[in-house]
């Protein structure tokens, strides 16, 4: 239970960075940390005590492999999720460059007052 609690604390740190900070780059860092916490949570859900990796090597029989291997389905879900998070950050960085061109600053307080 301690491990799930620690992962949820990391998730809430990311949400705080997204909600309460006023710099756009800090918001993007918060989105990144939320992505880390969610991916870690999926893989922790599929862990088996004293388990081996789900890749067959030519010295292990198939019955022993099925008994001891870690759950392979969450790993397949996380593998695509990591690359999608990278494309999201690329898009957000391009958006923040456009905002800096129009208003001259990264700070949301000054942008809200300018209304340009």
């Amino acid at each position: 239970m301690i491990i799930y609690l620690a992962i949820s604390i990391m998730f809430f740190i990311g949400i705080y960075g997204m909600m309460a900070k006023k710099n756009i780059i800090k918001m993007i860092i918060g989105v990144n940390i939320i992505g880390y916490a969610v991916n870690l949570f999926f893989i922790v859900l599929g862990y088996k005590n004293n388990g081996i990796q789900p890749i067959l090597v030519p010295g292990v029989s198939i019955e022993e492999f099925v008994e001891k291997a870690v759950n392979p389905i969450p790993q397949a879900l996380v593998l695509t999720s990591i690359v999608i998070d990278l494309s999201t950050i690329c898009f957000l960085a391009a958006l923040s460059i456009r905002i800096y061109e129009k208003y001259g600053t990264f700070d949301l307080e000054k942008i809200r007052r300018l209304k340009g």
């Binding site: 993007i28 860092i29 990144n32 893989i43 990796q53 870690v70 790993q75 998070d85 990278l86 960085a93």
Partner: peptide, 21 residues
């Protein structure tokens, strides 16, 4: 935790995210 190909992916993706930011 027993996921080697995810470890490779996370390492390289992390470096590229730093370069983008």
């Amino acid at each position: 935790l027993g996921a080697p190909d995810i470890a490779i992916t996370q390492l390289v993706v992390e470096i590229l995210a730093l370069i983008i930011l």
